[in-house]
């Protein structure tokens, strides 16, 4: 486990192919500093889903991605931040999803509800952010300033120290 803060930042106009390339790069990047491969996998999944969300809804296509690793004495924090511009409809949808998440304390239970609802959907899955929270085991929050949306997903990692 690396003991200094490490960050990865990228501003780009993601497309379908780039998202998987970024996910693979991030996996390789964080495998070097996080011993637990399951945690690396959770970070990769969360980053992929958040980027796809941005591709679908960014009004100008431009997206800022930041992934930060902050080591602590007993646990370390990984923060994934996505910023993009969005239209009013998407901002309202996002607010609804976050409101729903705040009303469901159990991320996995909420995920199962969202899955049942998604089964009959013709457009979109409505699962991306809910999956990040449940499968990625991330704490999720968002802020909106005018048309700028920031989504923050965070998780903690147990710090292992060599003796």
């Amino acid at each position: 486990m690396i003991e200094t803060p490490t960050a990865f930042e990228l501003t780009f106009q993601p497309n379908v192919e780039l998202i998987s390339i970024v996910r693979r790069f991030l996996s390789d990047f964080y495998e070097r500093m996080i011993e637990d491969q399951d945690t690396v996998s959770r970070i990769a999944l969360a980053t992929h889903e958040l980027l796809e969300n941005a591709v679908k809804y960014a009004s100008d296509g431009a997206t800022f991605l930041s992934v930060k690793f902050e080591p602590g004495e007993t646990s370390s924090t990984v923060s994934i931040r996505l910023m993009n511009r969005a239209n009013a409809e998407h901002i309202a949808t996002l607010a609804t999803i976050f409101d729903e998440m705040s009303r469901h304390d159990d991320p996995f239970g909420h995920y199962q509800i969202a899955m049942a609802r998604s089964a009959k959907r013709k457009v979109g899955s409505g699962l991306g952010l809910v999956r990040v929270r449940a499968e990625g085991e991330m704490t999720m929050s968002h802020t909106i300033e005018d048309d700028r949306v920031t989504i923050l997903a965070q998780t903690t990692v147990t710090t292992r120290r060599s003796s």
Binding site: A44, E52, A119, S125
Partner: peptide, 11 residues
Amino acid sequence: FMNSSCFKSFV
């Protein structure tokens, strides 16, 4: 890997 859109296809 499988994203949430493909996951939804299985659902």
